[in-house]
Amino acid sequence: MKEVNKETLKIAAEKLLFDMEDSQYETLLNEFHVIIKQLELMDNIEDLSSYSPLSFPYVDESFSLLRDDEVIEETLLNKEEVLANAKEVRDGQIELPKVVG
């Protein structure tokens, strides 16, 4: 397991595009110490490696999972309503700060 220290946590936060107060990293670090102890409890389970990782409660023919890639007119969203949620819009497009000169 990757070592957990304030630096690791800061790097993770940066990748997630946010930061926290120093005291909040302290809280998180303490939380990690507890969580790591809790994670160790998983090692007490007999024969755990014989189980494959389970991604959904059950998977069988009862899920549709994939559907044909068809446009369904009645569920199409209204462009104006969708764009109304973007803060800056110009010519029907969402505007962001210019990247290149």
Partner: peptide, 27 residues
């Protein structure tokens, strides 16, 4: 924010087997 960092930690390459996939085996 703390939950996201924990989730991100579990998904780190070094931790996938020992944390994330192990949790899914427990499940």
């Amino acid at each position: 924010k703390r939950r996201f960092i924990l989730g991100s930690y579990a998904l780190m390459k070094e931790n996938q087997e020992e944390v994330y996939l192990k949790a899914k085996r427990v499940r």
